[in-house]
Amino acid sequence: MICLSLVLALRIVSLAPALTEDLFAIGAGPAVVGVDANSNRPAGAARLPRVGGMREVSAEAVLALHPDVVVGIPYEDRILADLTRAGVRTERLDVSDLRGDFAAIERLGVLSGHAREARALHRVIERRLAGLSAQAARSRTASAFVAVGISDLRTAGRGTYIDDLLRMANLRNVAGDLPLLWPQYSQERLVAVHPEILVLPNPHPALLGAPWERIDAVRAGRIVEIDEDDLLRPGPRVADVLEMLVAGAARWR
């Protein structure tokens, strides 16, 4: 009983959209009292007080919400360190790859007193991923390039959840052997490797001129567009992204 009241009184501030979605997905939404500027999902999170975003988090705004715990990603190390010095409990969760994404869900479950729901969510996601992966394995392997950024050709390298998802979708990530998480890819190499499928966040700028005019996937329209809020963040909806990848790629193999 005492434990329950402690849980009910818990106040969490989330500094990353993926963590915010995780918290709401495991039923800890009512404990979330503040979020970063990019946490637009679910609707309940979008209505919460904003504390800034993209390394511009305001420590003061966070402290004004009297959080018991602040959760963030490694990108926000500096602000997390500031908050720790100010006496706030902080938790740094690395959600770069799927393993980290699942670990974050479980850890948030423990922190928020929703460990059981977190374990259940983890199991559901893994089961869906396994099913979709088995489905994709029945068709041939195709090569794919994910353009996280269009003008600078930023892509997803080894160790990202996107690389993990491509592998499950039986797609060979053109940038999968690169040792950086989010490297900028060479335009000339992209033209030379001519990936069969292009994966883009939606919305994205038009693909005009060099190098796009020379890339077969663009000329043939073999493009899988995925809402950027789905593609560009891990969290509880990674299985939805895999489903879109598998369904999109199925059109051409």
């Binding site: 990019n38 950024g149 269009i150 003008s151 600078d152 930023r154 966040p201 919305p203 700028p205 963040r233």
Partner: peptide, 10 residues
């Protein structure tokens, strides 16, 4: 959109 922020920074 997050993609817009990334484009500007880039």
């Amino acid at each position: 959109h997050a993609g817009m922020s990334l484009s500007i920074l880039s």
